[in-house]
């Protein structure tokens, strides 16, 4: 594998998907993370607090990151579970989560139409104690039709 092949893969990794955030999406996420505020499941409570519908917990973008971009046919998944298209052209034993940062501009509300855009921001290879480490940093941008963002995330995966 050459650095050039990695660069080509990175350039071809951009994806854009538009989805509608549903009340079920929010309820499932809230229940899964143990968020018990009724604002996540009860529209009346949400409306009383000034929202149009139920509101997602603050880090709901993590559900969109995988929930949107992992929607691939089962035979398009690597043995360990990652979509094959998300795996750089390298040999690796483990994929791990690296550093993540995110700007949170406003909460996701049921009914929001969200355009989710992903691109590879950077790639890097470093020699570690256990061999070569490959760092892939993705940018995920979640915005409405006017490109007004809900959240922007920078997420690094480490392959070794």
């Amino acid at each position: 594998m050459t650095d050039e092949a990695l660069t080509v893969w990175a350039e071809q990794s951009a994806l854009v998907r538009t989805v509608v955030v549903g009340c079920q999406d929010i309820a499932r996420f809230a229940i899964a993370v143990g968020a018990t505020d009724a604002v996540h499941v009860d529209p009346a409570v949400a409306r009383a607090r000034g929202f149009a519908d139920v509101v997602a917990p603050a880090l709901f973008y993590v559900a969109l990151r995988t929930g949107v971009f992992n929607l691939v046919p089962q035979d398009a998944l690597h043995e360990e579970g990652t979509p094959l298209r998300d795996i750089p052209p390298i040999t690796f034993r483990q994929a791990m989560a690296g550093e993540t940062s995110a700007e949170l501009f406003r909460p996701f509300v049921a009914g929001d139409v969200v355009t989710c855009a992903r691109r590879v921001e950077s790639t890097a290879r470093k020699e570690g104690r256990s061999g070569t480490l490959t760092f892939i940093t993705f940018e995920y941008r979640y915005a409405d039709a006017d490109d007004d963002p809900f959240a922007v995330e920078h997420f690094t995966r480490i392959f070794r």
Binding site: A32, G34, T66, G81
Partner: peptide, 16 residues
Amino acid sequence: QELFLFSAATWNPHRV
């Protein structure tokens, strides 16, 4: 169960 629910809610198929 919590790990399962989070994987399901986020559509995360990672086997670990």
